[in-house]
Amino acid sequence: MKTDHTGEPPDFYIGWQEKAPPTYARPVRWVVLLLVVLVPAMACLLVWQQRGFSDAVFEYGQLTMLEGQLIREPVPFLRVPVKNSPPDAPLFERILLIGYGKHGAEATIRQWEARYGSLHNKKIGVRGTLIYHEGHAALELTEEASACRTVAPLPPSLAIPTTQSLGEVTLQGEITDPKCFLGVMKPGDGRPHRACAVRCIAGGIPPLLWVRNGKGRENGYVLVGPNGERINDQILKAVGQNVRVRGRLGQADNWLILYVDAPTELTRLRADVLAQIALCQ
């Protein structure tokens, strides 16, 4: 910058004047030019460098009608008969039922029962919004009390469901809330989403342990207590974190249920432990 013998610049900038003197206008023009380059570059870089988002689907605004048997335990499902399955070995697929907002389905089911009486051993028609990802499907009861559209006696073809025991397992993964993780939010896991997952699970949505092998294989396991009781409140501190869980694995049609041995003893995996194990591997 040009200055006189005392080190003062010859020009002086006053904001309320019509024009800035060239001494001041020129560097500011360069700053604006720099920003014109920097701003789009930052936008591109920040978008490009994201880790990506899952292909999970939430059919927002699109209601789907499903018919099947209402399962209450250990968590609410709609058990839907698979079309064209052989009568001697009928197939069923389960759709996890989830309430509106960050709530489980129980309160809504109670509303249905208040209107229609006990839904035990009934075939119901439910309308809601589908959520699905990686072979797991859930139905948000968007219309809440009005979501239950039909109630009919259960036909004999809908056999009494059983849960097949698959033995003791130890699983490691992140505790997620299936509503967000299976499609409502993206990302529906990890640190930024943790508070939301806590809210959803505190609101009664069954916790889902999501296990990954890092090479594209993933699976989810609904977490319940040793006797199928809900453990949402006990695991809130571990939600959104990497944990190691031991328990009895059960298969309920196309869903896997993990009956956790001692939910209060979920091992939260610390980053340094993770790093050590990763190094050993």
Partner: peptide
């Protein structure tokens, strides 16, 4: 199953002689 179908349901069916028969379900990759 290398990459799961992003559908709410993936039923494996066999079509033979004009009729379709469901033989199982695909869920997680495996």
């Amino acid at each position: 199953l290398k990459q799961p179908f992003e559908t709410p349901s993936a039923v494996v069916c066999i079509r033979q002689e004009g009729s379709r028969r469901a033989v199982g379900l695909l869920n997680a990759p495996g």
